[in-house]
Amino acid sequence: MQCASNQVRYTFSRELRLLTPGDFKSVFANPTRAASPHLTLLAIPNGNQHPRLGLTVAKKHVKKANQRNRIKRVVRDSFRLHQYDLPQVDIVVVAKKGIDELDNAAIHKLVDKLWRKLTRRCNES
């Protein structure tokens, strides 16, 4: 039986979230970007031992609340599974027009690709 301290935890606890407007504002200031036609990921290094995630899905781009929630749920799930592969950065995921037309699997695949691109760009800088 494994000791609890050695287990890898795939949770999305409060400490893994960007919570305040100030957290978001600092990321928008001078970020490293990874983008696709449907999503943009913005990241800046943080002083923590783990990455943190913030999500913005504007009503202007995704009209229905259930679609906005679905997109956020899929992105959070992908982050939860990839959190140990990501560098120590604060990430804001910005949804763009047309993302609500993608199904969950397509969004998951897209976000996975963008995590890799963002990790590569953060490691270069």
Rank of each mutant, 00 (worst) to 15 (best):
L110A: 09
K97A: 12
N6R: 11
S36E: 06
T32Q: 05
C122S: 12
D100F: 04
R17E: 04
L81G: 01
F12W: 03
A43C: 02
C122P: 06
V94L: 15
K63D: 01
A35K: 07
T11V: 02
A34I: 03
V94N: 15
L114G: 15
V93A: 15
K60I: 04
S26R: 14
P37I: 00
K64D: 03
A4W: 04
A106S: 13
V74A: 12
N66T: 14
N30R: 04
R14S: 14
N69C: 07
D90Q: 14
K72P: 08
T20W: 00
H108Q: 13
V74C: 15
D103S: 05
P87L: 12
A29C: 14
G47C: 01
L53R: 08
T11D: 13
L110W: 06
L16V: 08
W115E: 00
P21Y: 04
V93Y: 07
S125H: 09
V75H: 02
S125K: 11
W115Q: 02
N69V: 05
V75P: 11
R73A: 15
N46L: 06
T56V: 13
N69T: 11
V92N: 06
A65P: 08
P45H: 12
S26W: 00
K109Y: 06
A35V: 11
A105R: 13
S13W: 01
E15G: 09
A65D: 12
L110P: 07
K72I: 08
F79A: 03
P51F: 06
K63W: 00
A95W: 08
T119S: 15
S78H: 02
L16W: 07
P37G: 04
R116Q: 09
L18W: 09
N66P: 08
L41E: 01
T119I: 08
H50Y: 14
A95M: 11
N48I: 00
Y84A: 06
V94C: 14
Y84N: 11
R17L: 11
F28A: 06
